[in-house]
Design a protein around this nucleic acid. Structure first.
Length: 126
DNA sequence: CTTCTAACA
DNA sequence: TGTTAGTA
């Protein structure tokens, strides 16, 4: 499922299309970029090129704004989100401890009985 | 014609 | 945020 994310991150939309898709003015879109909330690519002519992810984020920003959250607040939200993503990568790269191995073996033992396993294994403990 | 940056009767 | 000027 990585091909999908790749397409969504492809910057192929000019600001005009994004304006129609988000109902935001060019002024607003550029301002949000200025605030670091989005980082659209630039083509050979210095024109902003947005990805579907950018559009989603703009729509998200618009929602936060209507919910009464200001620029600073939205920035914080994305900062925390970024930090959590980095933390998750750290956990994923962290070598399994003896306790993790025990949990894995324990989970597999339980799965021998019921064929149904709704929540996938959660290796990184703590 | 569309988009960009900078600036404000 | 809108809008406008002068470009690319």
């Amino acid at each position: 499922m990585k091909e999908k994310e790749l397409r969504r991150s492809l910057a192929v939309l000019p600001i005009g299309t994004v304006m129609k898709l988000t109902n935001l003015s060019a002024r607003q879109i550029r301002y949000y970029e200025e605030q670091g909330l989005i980082i659209p690519d630039r083509n050979a002519g210095n024109r902003r090129m947005f990805s579907l992810n950018d559009v989603d984020r703009l729509l998200e920003i618009k929602d936060y704004l209507t919910e009464g959250i200001n620029m600073a607040g939205i920035k914080e939200i994305y900062e925390q989100q970024k930090q959590r993503a980095e933390q998750k990568e750290a956990d994923l790269a962290r070598p399994l401890t003896d306790n993790d191995v025990r949990r894995i073996l324990h989970d597999e033992f339980l799965n021998l009985g019921g064929l149904e396993s709704k929540p996938g294994p959660h290796y990184p403990t703590h």
